[in-house]
């Protein structure tokens, strides 16, 4: 789904929560994945010039999860390690979005190329 405006974030959060409920996530896990998604979507708008979120429900035997990819074609992140540092922000935020999303997820991947956009993928297992 497209992430272009703050309203899109509201809709996206609702969609992620619905899928989390459908996967049988506990209230805590729902809240964690929705909050992580909110952070990454906000970054797409604040820094990535808009982009999209791709949602994939996962099932491995009895294990269920949600995989979310946040993709933009924005300026990219020059120093990923620095960007992940708590408190680091170039936009007057709290600088806790990327690190927080990582801590809230079971798996976290980030790929970014200067001038080539950013892709952050998170997975949350129930």
């Amino acid at each position: 789904m497209a992430i272009r405006s703050p309203e899109d974030i509201v809709h996206m959060r609702r969609a992620v929560r619905e899928h989390a409920v459908r996967q049988g996530f506990s209230l805590v896990d729902q809240t964690k994945v929705v909050t992580a998604a909110s952070e990454l979507a906000r970054n797409i708008i604040n820094y990535g010039g808009g982009g999209e979120m791709i949602l994939q429900p996962l099932a491995e035997g009895v294990r269920k999860g949600l995989k979310l990819a946040f993709v933009d074609q924005g300026p990219g992140i020059p120093d990923i390690e620095l960007a992940l540092k708590d408190g680091y922000t170039t936009g007057g935020g709290m600088g806790l979005g990327l690190g927080g999303a990582k801590r809230l997820s079971s798996e976290f991947q980030i790929e970014s190329r200067v001038g080539g956009g950013t892709r952050v993928t998170i997975t949350r297992w129930k």
Partner: peptide, 13 residues
Amino acid sequence: RPQIAQTIVHLGV
């Protein structure tokens, strides 16, 4: 609520 408290802690706020 408890789930919000936990999430806030993980965020590092």
